[in-house]
């Protein structure tokens, strides 16, 4: 019930039409990785997925935003199936990835924002290394670059209310792993795959 209300609100305010450009909506195990511009991003990707995929796909959400307050926390955990991670974790590299590994080990999919924080540019900034480690540890999982068009205009960083501006969610062709590729090269290639979806004739 709440999920329908959330999807309805998202459609009414910002549309969020899904465009499957190089991948189709199938129930394969995947990591969708996207540019990050607003607090709408998690909702946008979640509501762009067909119902069947939504149930087995877990967005990664920052605990310092989605974990705050009972309502937001409930929506994040119970409705969006989100995995909350604490961005301030200090510890050995990759320790924060533990809950993500758990999801992948169970055969389910993830939505990641590898920039780690919201940007205000059209194109994504440098990616953090989490995507690389996960892609190495789970070589069977398909890596789907995802571009969110417009959320940085609809709900810019530092504002309290989204305005109605149509956003689209574009799913691109899977990024293949290349043997022997070094971490930074892989991350840059993944970033370019997301950025390539930005130059769509529609928008």
């Amino acid at each position: 019930m709440i999920d329908l209300v959330l999807i309805g609100l998202t459609r009414f305010l910002v549309g969020g039409q899904a465009l499957w450009i190089g991948a189709s909506p199938e129930t394969r195990q995947r990591i969708y990785f996207a540019n990050h511009a607003s607090h709408l991003d998690t909702l946008l990707i979640w509501s762009a997925l067909p119902r069947g995929l939504r149930a087995v796909t877990h967005p990664i959400a920052a605990a310092d935003y989605w974990g705050k307050g009972r309502v937001r926390r409930h929506i994040a955990l119970e409705v969006l199936n989100a995995v909350l991670i604490d961005r301030s974790t200090q510890g050995p590299p990759g320790a924060a990835l533990a809950p993500l590994r758990g999801v992948l080990a169970e055969g389910e999919s993830l939505v990641l924002f590898p920039e780690g924080t919201r940007g205000s540019e059209r194109l994504p900034g440098p990616f953090k290394s989490g995507l690389y480690w996960l892609s190495q540890e789970f070589p069977e999982v398909e890596l789907i670059p995802t571009y969110l068009d417009n959320p940085s205009r609809a709900f810019p960083k530092g504002t309290f209310l989204p305005v109605p501006i149509s956003c689209t969610v574009r799913f691109g062709p899977p990024v293949a792993r290349q043997t022997g590729e070094d971490k930074d090269d892989f991350l840059e290639r993944a970033r370019t795959a997301v950025a390539a979806l930005a130059s769509d004739p529609v928008g």
Binding site: G15, N150, S152, R153, P156, K157, G158, T159, V163, I165
Partner: peptide, 25 residues
């Protein structure tokens, strides 16, 4: 509402336009 959304979506606005857009909508 819907036509204004269509209009604004195709019009290049930036973050600094957020407040006027909030007032408009």
């Amino acid at each position: 509402f819907y036509t204004l959304r269509e209009f604004v979506s195709l019009t290049p606005t930036r973050a600094a336009d957020h407040l006027p857009l909030v007032a408009a909508f």
